[in-house]
Amino acid sequence: MKVAVFGGTGLIGSRVVENLNAAGHQAVPHSLSTGVDLITGQGLEAAVAGADVVVNLTNSPTFDDASLPFFQTSMDNLLAVSEKAGVGHFVILSIVGVDQVPELVYYRAKVLQEDILKAGPIPYSIVRATQFMEFMDATLSMTADGDTVRLPRTPLQPIAAADVARVVAEVAAGSPLNGVVDIAGPDVYPLDELGRLTLTAKSDSRSVITDDTAGMFAAAHGDVLTAPKNARIAPTHYTDWLS
């Protein structure tokens, strides 16, 4: 099976390509660095030619209002080329609870991406994952101020990128779901506690101040960003990943 993986050189995409090839498929990574641009359409037809499956793991370069036209244009372009090429399965990676946080423009943009795929001409699968463990440092930096980091008590259920990539590869190699599969890590933490755990493990002397108005995750209410019923639970614990 030939799989065209867009965003195939990134954190998740490179692992998806590796997993698919290890399973005997022909996975080819595509990205701006390989000369493929989903916005302008440069290199798209050649990238999709002969592919049985398209996996789109590209991401907006910003989390602001510009993310909406990014996903609109990139999905429109890639779906059109994929349909013309006879692609039989289209896979994207999204976020658990993405439709429950309308206050965040980036989450609205990801919902738009999902909706475009659902309404499109190609059988599809959507993999929704919880927050990546690898993004914890970036999350801390968003609200860091000198010797302190302000974080809300928002419950998160972090998942390792390797576990995400494994499921995306499995889904891509299977039959289209024409629906959503949710995946999450095994443990739920309030974000402020997760921050303290992370700083301690890294021997970082900064302290965490609980502030339920701080950062982007303050917009998520209740446990909407944790695993819903019937989610697949990945094996990697955050404490093991940290060590």
Score class of each variant (00 low, 15 high):
I39F: 05
D52K: 14
D37M: 05
I39T: 15
F63C: 11
G43F: 11
K2W: 05
R15Q: 08
V48R: 02
D52F: 02
V54W: 02
N21M: 10
G13W: 13
L57E: 02
P61Y: 01
N59V: 01
G13K: 12
L68V: 13
S31N: 03
H30I: 01
V36N: 02
L44P: 02
G43L: 09
G10Y: 11
S31A: 10
A51F: 03
T9K: 05
V55N: 02
T62F: 05
A51G: 04
D65I: 04
V3Y: 03
N56C: 01
Q42N: 14
D64C: 04
V5S: 14
L11V: 10
V54R: 02
R15L: 13
T58S: 11
N56M: 01
S60K: 01
V54N: 01
N19F: 04
E18L: 14
V48G: 01
V16R: 03
G7K: 11
V36W: 13
L20F: 04
S14V: 09
K2Q: 14
V3T: 13
N56K: 00
A66K: 06
K2I: 06
V55F: 01
G10F: 10
T34C: 01
V55M: 02
E18M: 14
A4Y: 05
A27W: 08
V17T: 14
A22R: 05
D65A: 14
I12P: 11
V5D: 13
A23C: 13
L68K: 06
P69C: 03
F6C: 09
Q26K: 02
E18P: 11
G43Y: 13
S67Q: 12
A22L: 00
L20S: 07
P29I: 07
V16T: 08
A23I: 14
A27K: 08
L68M: 08
L32V: 06
N21V: 12
T40A: 10
N21D: 04
E18K: 15
V54K: 02
D65V: 08
G41V: 14
G7W: 08
D65K: 09
G50V: 09
N21K: 08
G7T: 10
G8H: 12
F63S: 15
L57I: 02
P29D: 05
T40G: 15
G8S: 11
V5H: 14
P61V: 13
S67L: 10
K2M: 07
F6I: 09
F70Q: 09
L32P: 00
T40D: 07
A49G: 03
I12T: 15
N59A: 04
S67P: 13
S67H: 13
R15H: 00
S14H: 09
S31C: 02
V28C: 04
E45Q: 07
S31T: 05
F6L: 15
F70T: 12
Q42P: 08
P29Q: 06
N21Q: 07
A66R: 10
A49N: 13
L44C: 11
G13V: 12
A4G: 06
V53P: 00
A4H: 03
L68P: 00
L11C: 04
D52G: 15
G35V: 06
H30R: 07
D37R: 04
H30P: 00
Q26N: 01
S33Q: 06
L57W: 07
L57S: 01
F63V: 15
V48L: 12
P61G: 11
G7D: 06
